[in-house]
Design a protein around this nucleic acid. Sequence first.
DNA 1: AAGTGGTCTAGACCACGGA
DNA 2: CCGTGGTCTAGACCACTTC
Lengths: 235, 235
Amino acid sequence: MASYKDIHNILLERITGGEWPPGRLVPAEADLAEEFGCTRVTVNRAMQALADAGLVERRRKAGTRVVRRQSRDTVLTIPIVRDEITGRGGRYRYLLVERREAVPPQNIRAELGLAARDRALHVLSLHFADGRPYQLEDRWISATAVPGARTESFEAVSPNEWLLREVPYSRAEHIFSAARATAEEARLLELDADEPVFVIARTTWLTNDPVTHVRLVHPGSRFRLVTRDQPPGAL
Amino acid sequence: MASYKDIHNILLERITGGEWPPGRLVPAEADLAEEFGCTRVTVNRAMQALADAGLVERRRKAGTRVVRRQSRDTVLTIPIVRDEITGRGGRYRYLLVERREAVPPQNIRAELGLAARDRALHVLSLHFADGRPYQLEDRWISATAVPGARTESFEAVSPNEWLLREVPYSRAEHIFSAARATAEEARLLELDADEPVFVIARTTWLTNDPVTHVRLVHPGSRFRLVTRDQPPGAL
DNA sequence: AAGTGGTCTAGACCACGGA
DNA sequence: CCGTGGTCTAGACCACTTC
């Protein structure tokens, strides 16, 4: 008997195999149910999985069509830096560089939705892989959204790990870019001036309240971000 | 009456709102069904959506637990470069630089799974935004996997768009990195020597057969990759 | 008006895996 | 063993949307 996963895989094969090219109208659920000898609900379950994966578009009355791809989506997993390093057998070390409460600069205030004189917590820290600087973590934490951070020293635990463990978040935005290292970044990361760096800027919200904004700066010469990349629509 | 989407949102709120913290054991489906006055199937539908989104982990007998986050996942949409430029009101231009069949270098052969003397199609092209170079597309296409490419000139249509339209793919891998521009890259992108560039390397497969490998090189000073970032678990 | 997907119910059986 | 999730069926009604 065909389960909804079997049906899903068969339909997936018809799509990726070219039997049902982009734009093609897929048979109605009732017809497929008859073909596979099951209920329409079971076909519906399989089809919804394909729709969730973005492989087909469904509209009542109009039916189901194979999507014409406009872009590629890929899932990016950004691990905790400690796990990333130890996971490939490296030696990890954490170092707190600076921790202070201050009025953030204009661009950070905007990101965190703070008023002109609001203070926030600034934590600058370094993550080492095998003794060499691997990531500079330049973070601002909203004191109002995360009051607990004011009593945490961040001497033993990095803000990244602490926040991930202690503070739920509901939304995040990432910006990836390549840049020249600034003088301070070069000094802390032990790079030559103007060496390229890979920058991940992330802002995190908890139901529309900004929680934290961080700049993660990596030496370009020894950092790569790799996607997980399951087949689209895999269950 | 509570639909499975309502139930999903209520449970989502309990998780992100802190009522059910990470590690918490969630009530059994049967209990929730009673609470919401619906069938267990309906609760199951909502729970599966949460599990798909990675917010809970479910095991038979053991029950359902709120996940302890180890990492952050984010969905990256890599648009067709033309759409990316025109989408923000820019002027787009495409230029074919070189097209030839040749034996690829060692690293590309490995990526495409080719034997030592197999030939492949090499296409080098440029994408301009408002008259300035925006992306260098350095692509190798497997002649065996995509025979149709051998009769396509790529003078009017970029390989990226042509492939996305003509060739289905089942899996892709991306590597993002920051680097110094090589001499040729600097020349083509009209950059100073050693300027930082943002590189996206992508290999694409169709059911385990490599289709194409591409290096997309962007001037670091005018390129950023931004994530879409829906709330986790949104339906 | 009619076709198509969206969803619910009630009941059932199975599969896994902790105790 | 037996509680929990995984899934199916048969039938039903509804909600869109195109004709």
